[in-house]
Amino acid sequence: MSLIVQGFLWIFVPAHWTTSATSAGIGNALAQHLALSGLSLLVAGVIALPLGLYIGHTGKGRGVAIVSSNIARAIPTLGLLSILLLYLPDVPFLPSGYTPDIVVFALLAIPPLLAGSYAGLEAIDRQTIDAARAIGMTEWQILTKVEIPLGIALIIGGIRSSSLQIVATVTIAPLFTQITLGTFIADGLAQADYVKVVAGAILVAALALIIDGLFAIVQRFVVPRGVSRRPTKEKSTTARGTALAAKTGTPIQEGN
C-alpha cells in the first residue's frame, strides 16, 4: 500500500515534471504518449473505418474481417515491435523513427475499429434501410444519412475501445526506444526504483480513465435523438439481445 501512496506523491514532486538529462519529465512524456497514441489511432482509423463501413453496408467480406481481426489480436505486441524496430524502414508521412511503433499500435486498434463500424451498421433494423431505399435514396445517402447516424454509438464505441487499448499499450514502447509515460516504468524497473514504476502505472491508468470518460461523454452527445442509448428490448429470446448491450459500445482492451 505504501508503495502506491509513494507513487502518488512522486507524481506531485515538481522536479519530476521537468525534463533534464537525468529525468524524462512527466510533461514531456505525457505529450509524447498522446502524440504516439493519436498518430497510431489516426493510421488505424484511416484504414479500418472505411473498410468497416464498406463491410457493414454491403455485407461483403465480413468473414475475412473477423478472421483477420482475431489474428491481429493474437499478435504479440512486444515481439512484433522488437522485429519491426530492426527491419522496418521509415515510411513517408510518418515521423522518422516512429514507424515501427505506429504500425504495431495501429494494428492493435484495427480490430475494435473494424468491428465497431460493421457491427454498428449491421445492428440497424433492415426494414429501416429498405425504407430508405424505397424512398429513392442512393447507396451513398443511405450510408451517410441513415446507417452512420444510427450506428454511431457502436462506431464511437469501437474508437473508444481502440483508443484505450492504444493508450494502455503505448506504455511498452519505452522498453525499446520511445519516450511515453511507460518510460517511468521501464526506467524504474532498470533502476530498481519501484516508486517510479508505480507512479508510471498510476499515470497511465489515470490517463486511460480520463480518455474513457471523455468518450463516454462524446457517445452521449453524438447519438441522434430518437435512437435511445438502450433501445427497447427486442422480442429476442436468444443471444441476439447482445446487440442491445453492445449498443452502448463499452470498451474492453487487451494485449498491453
Binding site: A115, A119, G157
Partner: peptide, 13 residues
C-alpha cells in the same frame, strides 16, 4: 449468419 453476428457484436466491446 446470426451466430456470426452475435459474435461480432461481442467483439466490439
Amino acid at each position: 449468419r446470426r451466430a456470426a453476428r452475435t459474435a461480432s457484436k461481442a467483439v466490439v466491446m
